[in-house]
């Protein structure tokens, strides 16, 4: 091809290939780092033992749904219970960490509203005991999430991608979960 006989064009093409290689290779490498280190900790735990944020979120969903079961016995809480079920379903179907974070916050708001409503009802002694226990479990999971090593890994990853030359690449930051 005659065009390739032009030295300037060849230099430009070579540079373009190098840059493309850098971008593609760099992005793949960082995405692989994210999946293998950061996301894995979120989904399966630092030791791969299943003690992780994903599990904590599942436990929160369960506690929320069980709270709805108690609420279903009392007429004045139907609206809030529906709101909780909706938020739990949204959390269950969320796929990315960012979506899960958002859905988790929505579930927080919905459950708090339902719990406060329940306390305003004439609950039986056992229902009150169950409701308080479930609410405590629900909230304590947020505590464990805040201490989960995932956030440390996410912060480290963000430090890496903020440094040169990774900062030149179009790579998304890891979401800090709370």
């Amino acid at each position: 091809m005659k065009i390739l006989e032009n030295k300037a064009i060849c230099i430009v093409l070579a540079l373009a290939l190098v840059i493309a290689g850098f971008i593609i290779g760099g992005c793949r490498s960082l995405n692989s780092l994210y999946s293998s280190k950061v996301e894995k900790v979120f989904m399966t735990g630092e030791d791969g033992d299943g003690i992780c944020i994903e599990n904590d979120l599942a436990e929160r969903e369960t506690a929320a749904v069980n709270l709805c079961t108690i609420a279903s016995k009392y007429d004045g809480t139907k609206k809030q219970a529906d709101g909780v079920r909706e938020a739990a379903a949204e959390l269950s179907s969320a796929s990315s960490v960012a979506d899960k974070l958002e859905a988790n916050k929505n579930l927080d708001t919905a459950v708090e509203s339902l719990f406060n409503d329940l306390l305003g009802q004439q609950l039986s002694a056992s229902d009150e005991k169950y409701a308080r226990s479930l609410y405590t479990d629900f909230n304590s999971r947020n505590d464990t999430i805040s201490h989960d090593p995932y956030n440390r890994y996410a912060a480290q990853y963000n430090e890496i991608i903020a440094g040169f030359p990774a900062s030149l690449l179009p790579v998304k930051e890891a979401v800090i979960f709370y």
Partner: peptide
């Protein structure tokens, strides 16, 4: 569980 601890504390 934390719920059980809550009951015990109460």
């Amino acid at each position: 569980s934390s719920g059980e601890i809550d009951d015990m504390l109460w």
